[in-house]
Design a protein around this nucleic acid. Structure first.
Lengths: 355, 355
DNA sequence: GCGCCCTGGTCTAACGTTTGATCACCGTCG
DNA sequence: CGACGGTGATCAAACGTTAGACCAGGGCGC
């Protein structure tokens, strides 16, 4: 217990903060409510004398008027709010995505509401709550990785304005994905270029759309180089640090060992790297590690991780543009961010094979 | 460019999803709107025959009725939504906090709206938008670290229902903080217990309330052990990985070098550790590192970081309880989470000094 | 047989905002 | 001098929900 802390000291009472309404502004300015609304709203065809307008603006200013969100939403039947719902907010990768979403939303006059997808709660519940209750006009949704894409598609109402990211549901929702195939390929090609031939893949769950595609990219690169992507050189355990550790133990049990590993997610790569140190495996001398996805954490491992940076900002931005478009015209689209392409960032976890 | 991807295929049009309203349910059940409202709401003093009730429930079910959020909020003059606003959502530490907030909110019938604090946007703008427009009933707010506490207090309306976390503003808002003093002390005592005497502090910005208190705990522990907390053994650069790297370079320029460093934030510790490896400094043989704050990233560094786990879940939980209490009674309180106490998690980045 | 209360509902106003319809006034044209 | 058009506003309805006031009918006690 620290000596300087004391808890629970009551200090006062709040009078219920009475919100300023249009009618109070109107009373103060000596005009009707609708006059105030029109002036403040900046309606076209204003038809108000300059003096009255000024009186209204001053009154609103002095009273610190703020339009009530609920009343406006009720009247307009829309909220100008978009929901961004992801399974894990505390993912360093998410920052970039969120910035893309927020920038695009702001540019179109929307604000962003963040939601987390509970693993225990059914995803449909979240969607129903946000969209069904009219809390948001549309949704940018990343499904949890464990969920079966087909099952997800099932519970998506095709009439709802939903844009999936990192996943697809043809005919049921729009989608935007990054170039996962390219990402898997780029990471693999880097190892091949260094001279590796026994290259393993520490992949994500088989149900994950991104995992499937990164795996495909890996295999394409292998075959293009005349190498055989062997099944026992692949794990599909998941994207967490702990699952990365498991993947390493599994792959290091092979004989001969692979000399390079492509990891499908940076968090898994961080765990995998830590496990390699714990097992006394020297990275990159004995083992090269390249990962798909880059983040600030990747440059603070030891050795710093060679990574393929994916275009999450662009994905978020495109998703919102797509959503806004959908809200306007109703068009459903599927897009893949191919430009700019995934970008290889070479650090120190990869090197030519020593043998 | 990958061969399997094609972009921008239009697929269809959405008819505007007409939301089901109470009156539609009423029409279907052959009763009045208010009867439906009362039954669905489960009002006490229901006064409705079992058959009618059943008819209403069935109709609502079949029509998939969802109450309109805006209408309900307008009528009740509150939203049952609490805002949780933090500077950085993608902080591993934030998970725990958020869970505490969400659990407590759910227990009191509130949902949580997440907000990010833009560094460029004025914080007052965010508060005004959420609270002033009636989007939320109350706010759990963590100010950005760079902001001056006095300045923050200035712009807080004492009538607003705001609970600060990791910061205080006496008389202007409630607050909940973790035991930063105890955290700084515990980390320092650990190094002292191992036999270190030249112990440095890699601290946060001087304006940060948490940094001030962790520093105080550090100094208390030093003095209690008869050691002198020398000014040149302290940095106050900030909580990011890069600032941790800077801190290490600065502290390693000392002669003699410190044999142990207490870092005030785990992200800074991760950067500091990476920089140590880059400089060829062997942790923990040449240098022990202990950090305040624990997260999954701390166990995946090399060596794994000895850390003091702070009670973020409890802080989030307590903040919401405090907020709900404030919304009810108007009482303003300041609380410090002292129980459970900060918990030392010993890993491999600390050892007795070698000299 | 009259007043009363209970049951099972309906009616109505209100929350704050927006917007199309309406209106009083005035200058002007035919 | 009466109809007309433009100006500068106000009026009223509506969005979907809630809650208190109200009401019709029937059973019962006195």
């Amino acid at each position: 217990m620290s000596a300087d802390d004391e808890a629970g000291a009551d200090r006062g009472r709040t009078s219920a903060t009475a919100a300023v309404t249009l009618s109070e502004v109107a009373a103060k300015a000596g005009v009707s409510v609708s006059a105030v609304s029109k002036v403040l709203r900046g309606t076209t065809a204003i038809r108000v004398s300059p003096e009255t307008r000024q009186r209204i603006l001053t009154a609103a200013e002095e009273l610190r008027y703020r339009p009530n969100f609920a009343a406006r939403a009720l009247q307009a039947a829309r909220t100008q709010v978009l929901g961004l719902v992801v399974p894990d907010l505390t993912n360093a990768l998410f920052t970039e995505l969120m910035h893309g979403v927020e920038d695009a939303a702001a540019a179109h006059g929307y604000t962003v509401l963040l939601g987390r997808l509970d693993t225990d709660r059914p995803q449909t519940e979240v969607i129903a709550r946000l969209l069904g209750e009219g809390r948001v006009d549309g949704l940018v949704l990343q499904a949890t990785d464990g969920v079966d894409p087909a099952a997800l598609a099932q519970l998506l109402d095709p009439r709802a304005a939903v844009v999936l990211i990192n996943s697809v549901a043809p005919g049921r929702a729009s989608s935007v994905t990054v170039d996962d195939v390219g990402g898997g390929r780029t990471a693999t090609e880097h190892l091949i270029g260094l001279g590796h031939t026994r290259i393993a893949l520490a992949g994500g769950l088989p149900t994950s759309y991104t995992a499937q595609r990164r795996r495909r990219g890996h295999q394409e690169a292998m075959r293009a180089a005349g190498l055989d992507p062997r099944a026992d050189h692949e794990t599909a355990l998941g994207y967490t640090a702990e699952q990365g550790r498991q993947a390493l133990r599994q792959l290091m049990a092979l004989d001969p060992r692979p000399t390079g590993i492509v990891v499908a997610n940076v968090n898994a790569a961080i765990g995998l790297l830590a496990e390699a140190r714990a097992l006394g495996i020297d990275v990159p001398r004995e083992l090269s590690v390249a990962t798909v996805l880059d983040s600030w954490t990747a440059e603070n491992t030891w050795p710093p991780l060679t990574a393929v940076k994916m275009q999450f900002y662009a994905m978020g931005h495109t998703a919102v543009v797509s959503l806004v478009h959908r809200l306007g015209s109703g068009a459903m689209t599927d897009e893949v961010i191919l430009d700019p392409a995934p970008e290889l960032v070479v650090r120190e976890s990869t090197a030519p094979p020593s043998s």
